[in-house]
């Protein structure tokens, strides 16, 4: 069960520096050239897949992270 504080902090309600800046962690992201962690992901029809499963289908896969807003 996800931690409620984490859910609230990650899904912040206002774009103010004290709420969004803690998530700007690109410098701490995994290095290139090394295998990275896998995570469950969901298709729009609700079916479950995973990052690794998604990547296996192509020589290269471009993954854009983002949202409507």
């Amino acid at each position: 069960m996800p931690d409620a504080d984490l859910l609230n902090a990650y899904n912040y309600d206002s774009f103010v520096p004290e709420k969004f800046m803690p998530w700007m962690r690109f410098d701490e992201s995994p290095p290139l050239g090394e295998r990275t962690p896998d995570f469950p992901l969901w298709r729009l029809d609700g079916g479950e897949t995973s990052l690794a499963q998604t990547l296996r289908g192509h020589a290269y896969t471009v993954v854009e992270f983002g949202s409507f807003t």
């Binding site: 996800p2 931690d3 990650y10 192509h58």
Partner: peptide, 27 residues
Amino acid sequence: ALDGACHRAYGSMPNMTWIFNKSGVPV
């Protein structure tokens, strides 16, 4: 996931892009 597990593990920038090879290694 709602807690952004994957997003957070990769640096949680709002609109970043990664390219991975078939083995799941980011290039």
